[in-house]
Amino acid sequence: MDKKYILRNNNHFKKVYKKGKSYGNRLVVMYVYENGMDYNRVGFSVTKKIGNSVVRNKIKRRMKESYRLNCYKIKDGYDLIFLPKVMANKASYREIESAMIHLLKIAKLLKD
């Protein structure tokens, strides 16, 4: 994934948290904000409540791979932030992937 498609700046994260809309299920919370560009930007954030650094990085890798494989299905022009919940540390890759796709369906961000 190219660097321009990743949210890195703390100000961008704050803007999405403050002005964006949130959607959640039992494994993941997703924040969405329309960015006015012709491409999507994505950010992943994992809190220390989830576990130690090994567990946090494993969950983040699973979410990034799930997004990478499904990003072509998402409408353009949005900033997305994915936050896993505590239950995600016991979830498999397939469960995390289906949870993320479920949130995209709820937010009506999937292409027809």
Rank of each mutant, 00 (worst) to 15 (best):
L110V: 12
K108C: 13
N25W: 03
Y23M: 08
K64S: 05
R94Q: 14
N70R: 11
V16F: 11
Y67M: 03
R8L: 14
Y17C: 06
V16P: 00
N52W: 12
K108T: 06
C71S: 08
R26P: 08
K15A: 13
K49I: 01
K75Y: 09
N89D: 13
R94E: 13
H102L: 03
K49C: 01
K64V: 04
F44S: 06
I96G: 01
M100L: 14
E97T: 10
D2I: 00
G24P: 07
T47G: 09
G51T: 00
I6T: 11
L109Q: 10
Y39F: 15
Y33G: 00
N25C: 11
E34V: 01
K85Y: 11
N10M: 12
L109V: 09
M30T: 04
N9T: 06
L27I: 00
M30C: 10
H102I: 04
K90V: 04
R94D: 14
E95W: 04
S98C: 07
N10A: 14
D112A: 14
Y93G: 02
L109G: 10
V29F: 06
I74T: 07
P84K: 06
L104G: 02
M100G: 03
P84N: 02
Y72H: 15
K60C: 10
Y17K: 05
Y31T: 00
K14I: 07
Y17D: 04
N40L: 13
I6C: 08
I101S: 09
A107W: 05
D2L: 15
D38A: 07
K108Y: 11
K85W: 11
V28L: 14
F13P: 04
V42Q: 00
I74K: 08
V86Q: 10
L109D: 10
Y17N: 01
N25K: 10
F13Q: 05
K15R: 15
K18G: 05
D79G: 08
K64T: 04
R61I: 12
A91E: 02
K15L: 12
D76A: 13
K18M: 08
M30L: 13
G51D: 00
E95Q: 14
M37G: 09
E97F: 02
K58I: 01
P84G: 04
K15F: 03
Y67K: 02
D79A: 10
L80H: 03
Y72R: 14
V32M: 15
I81T: 08
T47C: 02
F82N: 03
A107E: 06
G36V: 00
N89E: 15
L80D: 04
G36C: 08
N25F: 05
S45T: 15
G43T: 10
H12Y: 01
A88E: 07
T47N: 09
G51E: 07
K48P: 01
K105F: 00
G51N: 10
L83P: 07
L69I: 09
H102Y: 07
A91V: 08
K73G: 12
D38S: 12
Y23V: 02
K105H: 13
K18F: 09
M63W: 00
N52Y: 12
P84C: 09
S22Q: 12
Y33D: 07
L110N: 11
V86E: 11
S92I: 05
A99S: 14
D38V: 01
S92L: 10
Y78W: 15
M1P: 11
N57Y: 11
M30G: 06
R41I: 13
G43K: 11
N25H: 09
K48A: 05
H12C: 09
M1I: 06
R61K: 13
D79W: 14
F44H: 07
G36Q: 12
K14R: 15
Y17E: 05
M30P: 03
